[in-house]
Computed example of a mutant assay.
Amino acid sequence: METYNDVFEKRLSVRAERFDVDAIAEYDLFLSIGEDAFRFAVIDASTKQCLYLEDYAFFKKLSKEELIAVLNRIYENHLFLKANYWNNIRAAFRNTPFTLVPNELFDSKANRKYLRWISPPLPNEEVCATPQQVIDAHTLFKAPKELVLWLENIAYPSRQVQFSHAVCSFLEGIFKYDYNATPVQFHVAVEANQFFIAVTQGSTLEYCNMFQYRTAQDFIYYLLFVIDELKRDPATCHVNFLGQINRQSKVYDIAYRYIKHLHFHERPALGITFDHNFDNVPSYQYFNLLAMHLL
């Protein structure tokens, strides 16, 4: 790991053999931005091969101003990240509030109203909408205006940046991936202090939410709360773990005490290929990032 002034560290950097910095115009760039980490993936637009993956962890929760300062530092010292000739660029925010609106009720002129009931948008916050074909709905979410402007005017002034929420690729990815034959699935994408949970039955989304947590006890409380609300039995329901979790994690250990059918999927079938340099990378930990190519 590389550490920079006790502010952040580079946790992961993996490059495929055929990555060519001179071929960036043929690659799609996917950015995942949060208060606790910044990640990006480079995927060949035609072959759908993952060519580059990097993960930067922050040592504390950053304010918007601190986050932009850290991103400036990362970009200034990076060989190719700030190139302005990518095929496509999509940035996803991980920590902002969101809601899902069925297409039959969606009105693009009412974006700010949809969020008013869960988290009223402030003047310095953009409200964005991403169509979700797999659930016939739109995801509405807040995006910090300062970050949007930084990406559009500083990082990539000559390219159009598409914006989404991490939950968008999470939903697209879990419907793409056929986990197993059980009728009801609990999908949990874990981050350091939050997790997404989506409950599916066949092609139907029954539940979707995001929870903040501080301890493993908080985590299991919210997870069991959702299971109970949906009148399911923790002893029989199947939970698929994704994101920043492994079998040594405290949240996994406490979850296993209550839920016996816990699953990890080392290579989710997201329509992406990897070369041998990625053999030791558990791609389920970067599920939401890698699934962005499905949007």
Rank of each mutant, 00 (worst) to 15 (best):
E2M: 12
D6C: 01
D6M: 09
F8L: 15
K10R: 15
D20M: 05
D20G: 04
I24A: 07
E26V: 01
L29T: 03
F30M: 09
G34E: 03
F40N: 02
D44L: 03
D44H: 14
S46F: 11
Q49Y: 06
C50T: 15
L51T: 09
Y56I: 09
K64G: 07
E65H: 12
L67G: 09
L67M: 14
L67Q: 12
A69N: 14
A69V: 04
V70M: 12
I74M: 06
L79M: 07
W86S: 01
F93I: 13
N95V: 03
P97W: 11
P97D: 10
L105K: 07
L105A: 10
K109I: 07
A110K: 13
A110Q: 13
P121A: 00
P123R: 04
V127I: 11
A129H: 05
P131K: 07
P131M: 01
I135G: 01
D136N: 13
T139D: 04
L147S: 04
N153F: 13
I154T: 15
I154L: 04
Q160L: 10
F163C: 04
F163G: 02
C168V: 11
I174D: 02
T182Y: 05
V184H: 01
F186W: 03
V188R: 00
A189R: 00
N193V: 06
Q194K: 06
Q194N: 07
G202V: 12
E206K: 13
M210C: 12
Q212V: 14
I227L: 07
C237D: 09
S249Q: 09
D253V: 10
A255L: 04
K260F: 13
H263G: 05
A269E: 15
L270C: 11
T273E: 13
N280F: 14
Y284F: 15
